[in-house]
């Protein structure tokens, strides 16, 4: 049995005259498009392109905020310092680990929640959606504090609730070791952002044509077969968009680490490293270089999703 999707619809250009010549109408529509999108583009350039360019420029200097008189051009030496430091690579690994674990778990959980939301009785559906979305509405810092208090050795309830599990006791110090700290950080992230992924997947679920499901049912396909051969293939675009957004988000993890461990026990993420160089050490040059490398990593992730998995971003707007 092959996957069942609707035959690909040939994408038609909105307005294009045969023979490649652009009609007056196309031209005027393009102009209108620029007029409509122009202000947004200008704002985007101002609030994103400018700071990025400034960071790239600053990263080429030895520049301390409290000592601007001794600012000096050092070329790429800041990048040399960072890339030859094990701390950078360790932070990259930690960030990668958190990203991988949280996104994988969130995808499975989010899908399950999306199914529940889609199939729930229409009477309880609004309540259910609101309930599932609550964690996403909580400010990340607040959620980080909540999880920290829960696992704290003095104020927390986790140790006494789960003391029946092997390895957990009154004296388990969750924030005293690397892996236990990372576990709590990942749990907090998953709890907080699963609703986001489930919301995107719910939109994807709604796009699966009911006719295909019915046809599969008539053909005698089981629930599992319909899921694998009909639902998932038709949702691929939505899943990839959800994954892309969450991966980019997860890679910039900062708040939970800042609140829970403050970077102790080798839990620094790349963002945290940028914070410590720029804000704590006031080394604007070095910190900007870390930020630029973080930016490049994010661009790399986005490009590999878009090119590698052929993610169509228009899916996220429900145009697919």
């Amino acid at each position: 049995m092959t996957q069942t999707t609707l035959p690909p619809v040939e994408k038609t250009q909105p307005v294009s005259a045969p023979g490649g010549t652009t009609s007056d109408r196309a031209r005027s529509e393009r102009k209108l498009g620029w007029l409509l999108a122009g202000p947004a583009l200008a704002v985007m350039l101002l609030v994103t392109a400018y700071p990025i360019a400034q960071a790239v420029y600053d990263s080429l200097f030895d520049f301390r905020l409290t000592d601007p008189d001794n600012r000096s051009f050092t070329g790429l030496s800041n990048y040399g310092v960072i890339l030859s430091d094990w701390l950078w690579w360790r932070s990259l690994l930690v960030t990668g680990f958190i990203t991988l674990v949280t996104v994988a778990v969130e995808l499975v959980l989010g899908f399950a929640l999306a199914m529940v939301m889609a199939k729930a009785l229409s009477t309880i559906r609004p309540v259910l959606r609101a309930a599932i979305l609550i964690p996403y509405a909580v400010i990340t810092v607040v959620s980080a504090f909540a999880w920290q208090f829960a696992f704290d050795i003095q104020t927390g309830f986790i140790n006494s609730w789960f003391s029946f599990l092997p390895g957990i006791g009154e004296d388990t110090d969750w924030f005293g070791g690397t892996w236990t700290s990372l576990l709590v950080i990942c749990l907090a992230e998953i709890w907080k952002t699963t609703p986001f992924i489930s919301l995107l997947l719910l939109a994807g679920l709604a796009q699966v044509p009911e006719v295909l499901q019915e046809a599969a049912k008539v053909d005698g396909a089981t629930w599992w077969q319909r899921m694998r051969r009909v639902t998932l293939p038709n949702m691929k675009a939505a899943i990839m968009v959800a994954l892309l957004f969450r991966t980019l988000d997860a890679f910039r993890v900062f708040d939970s680490i800042f609140i829970m461990t403050g970077g102790a026990n080798a839990t620094e993420s790349v963002s945290f490293l940028a914070y410590r160089q720029t804000i704590s050490r006031l080394e604007i040059g070095l910190g900007s270089a870390v930020s630029v490398l973080l930016f490049l990593a994010v661009v790399f992730i986005a490009m590999s999703f878009i090119k590698g998995f052929k993610v169509d971003l228009s899916q996220s707007r429900g145009e697919g």
Binding site: I153, Q154, D173
Partner: peptide
């Protein structure tokens, strides 16, 4: 105590 690596002024006062 078991939580020395996270002990601050408040938590040691509590203990």
């Amino acid at each position: 105590g078991p939580a020395l690596s996270t002990a601050n002024e408040d938590s040691t006062a509590t203990a």
